[in-house]
Amino acid sequence: MSDTAQIYDQGYRRYEGERTGLTGAVRTLITHSIRHALGIGRSAKFKTIPVLVIIFAYLPAVAFVGLAALLPEDLVAEGVLPTYAGYYSYVVGAIYLFAAFVAPLLLCTDRRTGMLGVYLASPLNRVTYLLGKALATLILLLIVTLGPPLLMLVAFSLESVGPAGFIEWIRVFLQIVVSSLVIGLLFSSVSLAVAAATDRWVVATAAAVLIMPGSAILTDALVYGAGLTDTLHLLNIPNMPRELIYRIHDEARAGSGSPLGDASLWTEREVSTWSLWASWCVYMTATIGFIWFRYRKLLVRR
């Protein structure tokens, strides 16, 4: 036997190394949840919906970037292309469809398959489990809320039709980041709350898909049809964060009347900016409170 020969034992052995602790457990949960939702490591049928939604979310951005390259600069400067805030008008449907698909997939499946009990037998507890799932949902939504406007910002800058100057560029960048967080957090929390209400992810997805346009139709009927107070616009789940994004980008509509084209949805007089922020906070608090209420004493299947 040579002096350099070694025996490799492939059998079970003790582990003496460092452990990653709670932080590692949360990180693992987030990574696994994202992979699961995107269908990575699963068969092709699980990849279809996420891939289609991501394509729909990026398609307008790619088209606008192409148009910016093809159109004359003066035409672009006149504002024929949508603003960064206005971009969400084109993709808000894709964003909430993605939220309605992802959150139930991440929460309902764990309860239905008993994985929740396995997770809670690890270093995770209910709070850290929910935190991990919420972060995974938010990161997934940021793919469709943050990615396309950032793509536009970078591409427009390269095509010399972006913000003028470094300070202005940073300001727009921050506005995009805050905007994507505003809509991502709200849609995440609403869809997670719906997912917390039932073990069946198909039911939760259908409910989440219906709640958002349902609230828009209802509030429009009450405000424009029945002539009730404009404050009811705050109950419009898909449009409320869109309007907030216009305000973040300083694009609130000055005049009155129905919104047209790329203009913001409501005027400051109809719905004030502070009431938009207040209602956003109320939505977040209520949905997080409901999720915690459901999970705090949830009987874990073992």
Binding site: G24, H32, Y119
Partner: peptide, 10 residues
């Protein structure tokens, strides 16, 4: 592997 990572293994 996922459960092992949850329990702190790299």
């Amino acid at each position: 592997r996922h459960i092992a990572e949850l329990h702190g293994l790299p």
